[in-house]
Nucleic acid binder design. Structure first.
Lengths: 146, 146
DNA sequence: ATGTAATAGTTGTTTTTGTAACTAACAAGG
DNA sequence: CCTTGTTAGTTACAAAAACAACTATTACAT
């Protein structure tokens, strides 16, 4: 494939980011998909609840930068499968507090283990310097504060 | 948001990659979407043809790691809008050679300009070291050779 | 009070994607 | 030649995502 002009697609950051993100997402997706028939939206909700405890749909949306309709549907599916419970806030009856059930926590614990192993496998492909710089740079680009 | 266990979602590489990729894709997408009503699959095809000249659908698929059905549909839409022409290979009548029209090349040139500016804006958010290491690491993770 | 706006979340409809099955053309062994 | 297998690309159908319009509730200014 001869290059014809000065632009290099393989160095174009959005393109590179997508290639890397797609590859790693797809590989990790196999786990929660095969194991629990879960979608990416669903594991994201599950992980937020598993990690931070009780949250509202809106809170998850802010943190995960997911649209509220995606969350609404993911919450529905997770509730159907008894992975979480929903409780209306009595002070403000618009908001719902979501919380994992025992079953949900079990799934989370299991997936978290696998996530950590998978992350370690990715990490192992890079040098320590690359790992540190990579994560920092990604956070800047994603504008994640903490 | 108090942390409850040792796992850190904000450091989990597939998650970080997705956040960064989504953000940058979305921003750049506005350009080709607003300007040409183009989808991401379409600009990828356009960029490949603009950059490498005549290619087949299969060749683009290999390089962009896109499924052939996505390419097939993107090529259709681009052909409908007269951005590219399709020519059967006479030696092997299964393959089609795709090539940008004048109009396609014009769109490519314009989008390439914007892509370079956008890449420069992203690059400016990072230190030179971060830029070098980031791109290298992403290529490793995406398993892009060259 | 009461009309207007804002917020939390849901639902409906349209696009886009994923998956699998398909057609057409070639290749290679008997 | 014919069967069997492979490859390029398309099409059909199902799953998921995007987008807009909606309900219910609260906030807030008159």
């Amino acid at each position: 494939m001869p290059e014809k002009d000065s632009f290099d697609l393989q160095q174009f950051l959005p393109y590179l980011l997508n290639q890397a993100a797609e590859r790693s997402s797809l590989e990790f997706q196999q786990v929660y998909k095969d194991r629990y028939g879960m979608l990416r939206t669903e594991w994201r909700v599950l992980f937020h609840l598993g990690l931070y405890g009780k949250m509202t749909a809106g809170g998850i949306g802010q943190s995960a930068k997911m649209h509220k309709t995606k969350i609404s549907r993911a919450v529905h599916r997770l509730a159907d499968r008894r992975f979480l419970t929903r409780a209306r806030d009595e002070a403000d009856r618009r908001v719902e507090h979501l919380e994992l059930t025992a079953q949900g926590r079990k799934a989370y614990a299991e997936l978290r283990e696998i996530a950590m192993e998978y992350d370690a496998a990715l990490t192992a492909q890079l040098t320590p310097e690359e790992n540190a710089v990579l994560r920092g740079a990604l956070r800047k680009l994603a504008r994640i504060s903490a």
